[in-house]
């Protein structure tokens, strides 16, 4: 390749333009290969839909540990967790409030609420004094059944109810987390 610019001759500007264009094009490739490779790998979590066990019923408690007095009690949800490369067989993945009410026959009715506030994802407290849930972050309040109890509550929806099954004396919950900040429930996967 002839690289040097010689004395000015007709056609010189065109020659310089092509060299400049070639240098710029190659420079673009040189920059793009490492950057695009990095960005592509960096975007991996957006493309990946991991199986987080969402939707499976998990054993959370026994009827013995949940009196049928209508008072919510908090239980940890323990399940296998895959965190990037680590597979932990049994580890806490979240928590639920369970509440059992009795109609006088059988084990009664058990409801489960995810402890996560649907507003911005804080952990809500159950406050016995006001018979309801209170979020310590932005003061969302919920009735004992999880519904929004005050129009001024910042949360766009009530606490997320989870499906419950009674198997023998065991309480199984279909544990799931949901997107926060919207009026409808959209499960996270």
């Amino acid at each position: 390749m002839k690289l040097s610019s010689g004395p000015v001759v007709p056609g010189e500007p065109r020659r310089i333009f092509f060299k400049a264009a070639a240098a710029a094009a190659i420079g673009g490739v040189l920059g793009l290969v490492p950057v695009l490779t990095g960005v592509w790998v960096w975007l991996d979590p957006v493309r990946r839909r991991t199986h987080s066990g969402a939707g499976a019923f998990l054993r959370v408690a026994t009827l013995e540990s949940l009196p049928a007095d209508g008072v919510p009690r908090r239980f940890a949800v323990v399940a296998e967790k895959i965190d990037a490369w680590t597979r932990t067989p049994q580890t806490p993945v979240g928590a639920v409030y369970l509440r059992r009410t009795s109609d006088g026959t059988g084990p009664g009715k058990v409801t489960a609420l995810n402890v996560v506030c649907p507003h911005a994802g804080c952990f809500v407290d159950y406050q016995a004094s006001r018979t309801g849930y209170f979020c310590p972050c932005h003061n969302s309040t919920f009735a004992v059944n999880g519904a929004i109890d005050m129009p001024s509550s910042p949360s766009p929806r009530g606490l997320d109810e989870l499906a419950v099954e009674i198997r023998g004396r065991e309480i199984w919950v279909q544990f799931q987390n949901f997107q926060t900040g919207r009026a409808d429930k959209v499960a996270l996967s």
Binding site: M1, L3, S4, S5, I16, K19, A20, A22, A23, I26, G27, V29, L30
Partner: peptide
Amino acid sequence: WPDQVLADAVACL
């Protein structure tokens, strides 16, 4: 610019 830059770019490539 542009002769040496082009040579450098080709070498980098």
